[in-house]
């Protein structure tokens, strides 16, 4: 077993997910079988191989720093689950 239920709980915390006991058991089992399958990559010697994070030979892409039209405040907030006075509204995060 590569990962335990405890690992699954830790990863779920990092990913900001709650898992119930049934899900924890299921993901522990399934992630183990997927990770076992991925073991096959270790058959390859990649010590001298450069990583490819991107296929195109693009470096930094710059554009002119000029003012362009942007969305109106009400359009930006149109999909907000909660809003007030033109702002996104979130639960209090700073103690008094």
């Amino acid at each position: 077993m590569k990962i335990t239920k405890k690992d699954v709980e830790h990863v779920a915390m990092l990913a900001r997910l709650y898992l119930d006991e049934e899900e924890k058991a299921k993901y522990t089992r399934q992630l183990n079988s997927i990770l076992d399958y991925m073991e096959k990559l270790n058959q390859l010697d990649t010590e001298k191989v450069e990583p490819t994070s991107h296929v195109l030979p693009i470096k930094n892409v710059f554009r002119k720093d000029r003012v362009e039209e942007s969305l109106a405040n009400e359009e930006v907030l149109a999909n907000a689950p909660d809003k007030e006075n033109g702002y996104f509204k979130v639960p209090k995060i700073i103690e008094d």
């Binding site: 991925m38 390859l44 191989v49 490819t52």
Partner: peptide, 13 residues
Amino acid sequence: YYLKALKVRTLVK
């Protein structure tokens, strides 16, 4: 995992 995978991606390419 991730870095290894990016290297294998080079081999696939």
